[in-house]
Write a protein that binds this DNA or RNA. Structure first.
Lengths: 340, 340
DNA sequence: TCCCTTTGCTAAATCGGATTAGCGATGCGA
DNA sequence: TCGCATCGCTAATCCGATTTAGCAAAGGGA
């Protein structure tokens, strides 16, 4: 029984004016175009009574802008890591009265093309191209106003990027240990010690290692893990413990740290009494682990927000082309670090 | 330098026919309306050369359908639990050439109204109203074609619901233990033993307990937890161990189970040697825990898919009003269950 | 040869707004 | 009283498609 939507024509008729006048009033251009106060009130009252809301599709067709942006990711939308990224984007979008389309490419260029087309066909005002893990991506031609989120362009694209400040995060992690008094017997789990000793395509790893180096922390040794999962962290740490006696561990992410905890536990070593542990990401498990894990957080929410902000600046032409925006990664001080 | 989109008029001109003819060919109605094969080919060739794609906004205005649906949730989109729900919906939507708007209400009715309006103004073809945890929700008036996902209507709304089969899940969990030979000393962590002993508004809890009861498993005792977080699981299990010697634990979700593991470990009890553990949800941590947790999975992906499928049936009028679709919850057999 | 049907295509209306150009009435100065 | 500017509003066009109604040419039967 849902009756037809109220259109501008209905509104005009109810108010006894022309569609032009009604439109002028509703778009706030009444004053500018000399609509009398009386008529304006009449229209506004009628609009209120009828519950008039302009049809956004029609407006989109006429004006060419739809107050809609597209969020295209490889697989971000569905990973917990990135839920907050979407949330940030969603809230920033809502503040601007903009809706979000989402789509996932699964890393398939064909799917990506299709998605971008579907969005462009729907006249999105701009596009956020997001990646699950910070990576270099190939930017499609003719994408229109867009920003890269958690990604950097493979070749100069003129598009702005928003990425976490991983180098800063590396520095922060190192400083947490230095300030606790750890100057030696610090080992890395997941990558290192040199910044080229990283699993493939892990931009974050390189930068975290660079940051650790910059902070002037001496690294006693490291174990590289191909896949940053708990099992690898367990295996790497176990192998490390066979030959060394670490006083502190920097795990390249929280899942590795989870595995490291298990290995330390198995070896009868306590955290942080015997070994301090610092990590990266601030995955939800970090605060479930015992003792709670001190970790440098990926600012997903902020990344998402920032992407929308930069996209709007971009659309307003007030953007420096190709600028890389780095979002600070805050340290979450918890219970896994103590003096040696 | 992105040149203007190719419009139907451009295509018509390039092919040397009228817009009508071009449209007829492109929408596949050429045969039906007696467009000659020659002309048809000419148009198709031109379309291919120019890369013509119809402007979806215009089509939406003219036809009233936008091939777009809205996904409105309380806070689903951003929780890991629900990432897969979105993914399922996304894939099912893609298969149908439909795009997804997403929005979060944070449980705020005002926000919800705004979001629904924003979507309706954009002429979505249908709406998925989703909830983070299975709950009863108040369905807004005049929502148009819609389905409830992981939620049930507070008052009869005629809308279909898609929810996990929690009763079946309870039965499954109980059977896992029964089949392993556990007939006594089985305790519950999180809720129970009676199906009314649950934290507020937890529909899932009630049904899981009902299922456990139905399976004929005798429950020796239970601990209710207000909030289903690891810390509560730890506390509840610790308190349980003070007075009893369980042979098996059914945790009402995986986070509680994580806490239970910690308590059992502290007490020097091994899983599954001394105590078997079964749980619900199949949260990612379930396979990170050691031993890996046997748990009854929330079928998020399937729920999301199903929501889109039912929504389409709904839009095609081929739906039974108010039907509740229950999606099976599969058991993930892992390492936390052994004979007593 | 004339009339009617079929074939093959197109003009025009439509969707719901935004926008441009302009029209009639009034006010004002000369 | 005439001419011109200003005021207050509206007719008409446009955005890019779909869809209805109908036109001109060709074909067929009497």
């Amino acid at each position: 029984m849902s009756r037809r939507r109220v259109t501008l024509a209905d509104l005009a008729q109810a108010a006894g004016v022309s569609r032009t006048t009604a439109s002028l009033v509703m778009t706030g251009r009444g004053r500018e175009l000399r609509i009398s106060h009386d008529v304006e009130q009449k229209v506004l009252r009628a609009a209120d009574e009828l519950g008039y809301r302009p049809n956004a599709v029609s407006v989109g067709l006429r004006t060419g802008t739809t107050r809609t942006i597209g969020f295209v990711s490889d697989t971000v939308a569905t990973s917990r890591l990135a839920g907050d990224m979407i949330k940030g984007a969603l809230e920033a979008a809502r503040e601007r009265g903009v809706m979000l389309f989402i789509g996932e490419t699964e890393g398939d260029p064909e799917l990506e093309r299709g998605l971008l087309h579907a969005m462009q066909d729907r006249q999105v005002d701009g596009i956020i191209l997001a990646a699950m893990y910070t990576r270099m991506i190939k930017v499609p031609k003719d994408i229109g106003p867009a920003v890269l989120l958690n990604a950097l362009p493979k070749s100069a694209s003129g598009l702005p990027s928003i990425v976490p400040d991983e180098v800063g995060a590396g520095r922060s992690a190192a400083r947490v240990l230095l300030e606790a008094g750890h100057h030696e017997d610090v080992y890395l789990i997941g990558a290192g010690p040199r910044s080229r000793d990283v699993p493939a395509a892990r931009v974050a790893a390189v930068e975290r290692l660079t940051g650790i180096e910059e902070a002037g922390l001496r690294i006693a040794g490291a174990r590289v893990c191909a896949d940053w999962q708990p099992e690898e962290g367990l295996a790497a740490t176990r192998s490390l413990l066979a030959g060394h006696r670490p006083r502190a561990l920097i795990c390249l992410n929280d899942r590795l740290a989870l595995g490291a905890y298990q290995a330390l536990n198995d070896a009868g070593l306590s955290v942080p009494g015997d070994v301090s542990v610092v990590s990266f990401d601030d995955h939800p498990i970090a605060s479930w682990m015992r003792p709670k894990l001190t970790t440098v957080a990926l600012p997903h929410y902020e990344l998402g927000r920032k992407a929308v902000e930069v996209l709007f600046a971009q659309m307003g032409e007030q953007a420096e082309p190709g600028r890389v925006h780095r979002v600070a990664m805050p340290v979450r001080h918890r219970e896994s670090v103590a003096p040696p």
